[in-house]
Design a protein around this nucleic acid. Sequence first.
DNA 1: AATATGTTTGTAATCGATTACATTATCAGG
DNA 2: CCTGATAATGTAATCGATTACAAACATATT
Lengths: 325, 325
Amino acid sequence: MATVSRVLNNDPVVAESTREHVLQVINEVGYSPNALGRSLRKNSTRRILILLPSIAHQFLSGVARGAEQAAWRRGYQIVFSVTHSNAELERKYVNMLLQRSVDGILFTTSQLTAQELSGLSSHYPAVMCSECVEGAKLPYVGIDNEQAAYEVTRYLIEGGCRRIAIIVHLEDYSSRLRLKGYKRALLEKGIPDRMEYHVKGDYSITSGAHACQRLFSLPEPPDAVFAGSDLMAAGVVRRMYEMGLHPGEDAAIFGFDNIELARILTPSLSTVSQSKLQMGRKAMELLLEQIENPQCEQENVQIGHKLIFRESTRRIEQNYKQGRV
Amino acid sequence: MATVSRVLNNDPVVAESTREHVLQVINEVGYSPNALGRSLRKNSTRRILILLPSIAHQFLSGVARGAEQAAWRRGYQIVFSVTHSNAELERKYVNMLLQRSVDGILFTTSQLTAQELSGLSSHYPAVMCSECVEGAKLPYVGIDNEQAAYEVTRYLIEGGCRRIAIIVHLEDYSSRLRLKGYKRALLEKGIPDRMEYHVKGDYSITSGAHACQRLFSLPEPPDAVFAGSDLMAAGVVRRMYEMGLHPGEDAAIFGFDNIELARILTPSLSTVSQSKLQMGRKAMELLLEQIENPQCEQENVQIGHKLIFRESTRRIEQNYKQGRV
DNA sequence: AATATGTTTGTAATCGATTACATTATCAGG
DNA sequence: CCTGATAATGTAATCGATTACAAACATATT
């Protein structure tokens, strides 16, 4: 029994002959070690939980891939759970960490309070990635949302747009930062910041379509729409067609996230690209570091971003080229 | 210690006063029961693993939601893992079942051999859903792929199309069934089945675009394209625009799965709708039944499907209406 | 007061793998 | 053939929660 364990753990002390014999018998009887017993004894599962708001999440799937790669490289397994942006459900999954079913947790989103997250993080390995919660004390990996939004808005203004609408989800921190960047650019360029051009969206296609409907029913419809996600931008595109407008012509569209959809829509979407793989990888590395070296102090990490220009801002691009600006 | 356990398990035998005291102390010291010890003793984790080929999977996310609901209702937790369609990786996750880290496994896809799956299923609770593996002996829940493809093809033919291309992934069983349905319809209507109209795709947007390129470079390009997934259909749409063609006009397009994208593309996609929620729910119910009642015999379950007609077959729709057919 | 009855609480074995420690096997050298 | 050293295997405690069973306690009955 002890020898079987030693064989399975590659303990060099067992004789080659017994090792072979053990392996053969294991094969014959179809024995499979019980991970519960092992983890209980070792006080480690070598398994990480990644929390996602939903499965079909284009952007986070890239982040998840990066995180997975980093985990596998260090011999950890990944499981995902889905919170559906529901705090109650999220708490149940967070319990997997408290109850030692996983060694660490990577949040890509959270409905928990800053206090809950801080408390959790002070006793257990946890990292936040992509989305972040204002005031929560736990290591965070993400982009500079304020700066990215600033750059997009400035680009639109310099490209000749004057009535720039923004669609954001005002309830999360990164959205608020994006709004701040947008305002900074407007202020800097002396463009009035008009409330009727701020529309709330929840990252979904449908909310983008609704926002679009509202915006293009205004007496002075926008000449550019900056959506806080590519999905919302897709909703805008779709609804503009339905309203008899030409997305990209009648208004420039800018998305966020650079998901695959952005490339295949007609017109293809200009968008903000975040390095998803890098973000996930870095977050996982921080987490594993915490697990294996619990007393280490950790800092937030900022990942670079870049603007990608496609058909949905082609008119602006032409303005730039023709020096019309 | 025994009493604490009894309190946590709501054993009515403990006195109300001690129960309160125990709960208070638990709160004070921040005690959280160790799930490993508990599961080890109870020989049950009340946790199910759902295997997905990738995270950002629009279609399977609906299936997963249905499965989740059914699981929560019966007090089971769900975790997901991602196989990236890699058999090696998949085996590692399947090990979670062998090692008792989960009570059951729900495959939505699999790269394992029929033999492996059959062996697994004969000793452990496992169900296959949506995708299926030919010859594998384990309960399966899905639609009648052959019939669905037959209906689509027939519809296209009756709508006046004569050069109908099909894009499918020939390596999986459901794709082969779809091809079979397609052939059946062609045969029935006396339309020649031309090999140059069979193009291979791997369910991705890109593969749809490639297939499209090939098809519309033929001397006799198709007048309809039936794609084995909405994503591939989206790739076709995109590439047709790029080739200066008009999807929906120059050729009817039919997708499969009815993911959200199908609704927002321009033109919106006609497609085959499978009841994702129902499929997931049913599969989970079968699985939980197996877990709680190991000796029960189970049968495959077929879920209904329906054809959804949108802009990408509008021309055909008009033919029907105008009685031109 | 003594016994019977019912209610709580405590004790110890158990789940399965790991591992420090004890024990046995192996073999070289005297 | 024995001693001593080393190599290999076995024994038993441990991780933390559960639960059959035993023990203690409280209350009612005669």
